[in-house]
Amino acid sequence: MTRLCYCTNVHPAEDVAGILGQLDSHAVPVRERLGYDRLGLGLWLAAGAAAELAADPAALRRLRAELDARGLSVLTLNAFPYGGFHQRVVKHTVYRPDWTDPARARYTADCAHVLAGLLPDDADSGSLSTLPLGWRTPWPPAADRAAQSALRWTATELRKASARAGRPLRLAVEPEPGCVLETVADAVRWLAPRVDPEVIGICLDTAHLAVSFADPEQAVTTIERAGLAVVKIQASAALHVDDPRDPRARRLLAEYAEPRYLHQVRELSGQGRVLAADDLPEALDGLPGRGPWRVHFHIPLHAEPQAPLRSTTEVLRRAVAAVRDRTVVEVETYTWQVLPQGSDLVDGIAAELTWAQRELLDGGRSV
C-alpha cells in the first residue's frame, strides 16, 4: 500500500518539546480538518534531538506515546538537514556535514534507531532520506572513498535498527542539482557498485527530478534496471518558465529569489544540453534564457504560480505512476514561509494532502 504523509521540515523546532508544540499547532489541526483518525508524518529531527532520543529508550517511548495520543504516525524520517534549516540564511549549509564527515553517519544512524521506535505497528518497512553525498565542490577522489566507508558503517547500523524494529529500514539517497550525485543517473552509477540494495536505495524527489529535465519513466527504469529501489518519493513541484526572457516572467521569477534557501536553475538548450546556475539570482544575471528554465523552488502542489510561470506537477504525476512498488509518498513543501504570497500553513498542508490523494493515489485514503 502506498502511504501518504507530509514532511515536518516545514516546522522550525529542533528539540522534542518544540516539535510537539509545532505538531499541536499544525499537524493535529490538519488531521482534524481532513477527518482522519491518523495522519502520516515524514518527521524531521535535527541532530541534537535525534541523538537524545537514540540514547534514551524511555524518552523515545514517551515520544511515541505522545504521537499516538495525537493521532500521528511517523512513516519516514527526513535525515537530510542536520540542523538550522530555518535560520536566516541556509543556502549551502544544508549540505553540511557531508558524507565525508563522521558526524553525518552518526546522525543518520541515530535517525535509524529513532525510526525503529516510532514506526507504526502496521508498517511493513521504514525509510529515511539523506543528501547525495555532498555539494559537488570540493569533492576530491578521497571524498568518494570516505563517503563509501561511511555508508558501509551506516548500513551496519541500519541492519541493527531493522532487527530491533522487526522489519527493514532503508536509507534513501536523494539526488539534487548541484550536488555530487546531481541526477538519478549519477546516483545509480555511484551507488549500484558500492551499496547493498537491500539497505540503501533512492529517494525520488520530484522537484529535483523536474529541474534536471529528466524523463520520469526513464529515471525509474534506470533505478530498477540497476537493481536499486525507489525507497521513498518526495512529492514536490518546481517552477517552470517557457521563455525566461519574457519581462513579466523575469519580474515574477525575481520574487522567488529569496535569501534563505538555494534555488538551483537549469536551462534546456535547443541542442538538448542542460545549462546550470547554482542559484536564481545567478541565473537571472547569467543564463542565456533561450530555452525553458526549471527552478528548484518547492511550489505548493495544489496551487499554480502566476502565469507565465507554471508548476512541474506533471513530472510528479508521471514519476509516482512509474514506480511499481508501492512506497511512502512524502509531501515536502518546506518553502511556505518564503513564498512570495503567504498562506495559512494548516490550510496549505491540508490542501496539498487533499490534492495528493486525489491526483496521485486515485482518491484512496492512505495515511
Rank of each mutant, 00 (worst) to 15 (best):
R3C: 01
Y6P: 03
T8M: 12
N9M: 02
H11L: 15
V16Y: 15
V16E: 15
G18T: 06
G21N: 10
D24Y: 01
H26G: 02
R31P: 03
L45R: 11
A46L: 02
A49T: 00
A51F: 03
A54N: 06
D56N: 13
P57S: 09
A59H: 05
R62C: 13
A65T: 06
L67Q: 02
L67D: 07
D68Q: 12
A69H: 04
A69D: 09
N78Y: 10
N78D: 15
N78W: 10
F80W: 15
P81L: 05
P81Y: 10
R88K: 15
V90L: 11
T93H: 02
V94M: 15
A105H: 01
R106Q: 08
C111K: 08
C111P: 04
D121I: 02
D124C: 00
D124W: 00
S125G: 05
S129V: 04
L131K: 15
W135N: 10
R136I: 05
P138W: 07
P141I: 06
P141V: 10
A142E: 13
A142R: 07
A143G: 11
A146T: 02
S149D: 11
R152I: 00
L158Y: 01
R159C: 07
A161I: 06
A161F: 07
A163E: 11
L171T: 01
E174T: 07
P177A: 09
G178S: 08
A187W: 04
W190I: 00
R194N: 11
P197S: 06
I202W: 08
C203Q: 13
L204H: 13
L209P: 11
P216E: 06
T221M: 09
T221C: 06
G227C: 14
L228D: 06
A229V: 15
V231N: 15
K232Y: 09
L239E: 04
L239Q: 11
R251F: 03
A257S: 08
P259D: 13
V265W: 09
S269R: 08
G270P: 06
P281F: 14
P281R: 10
E282M: 15
L287D: 10
G289C: 12
H298K: 13
P300F: 12
L301V: 08
L301S: 02
A303Y: 09
Q306T: 00
A307L: 05
P308G: 07
S311T: 10
T312C: 04
A322V: 00
V328F: 10
Y334G: 05
W336T: 05
Q341C: 01
D347T: 14
I349M: 03
I349N: 03
A350P: 14
E352Y: 03
A356G: 00
S366L: 05
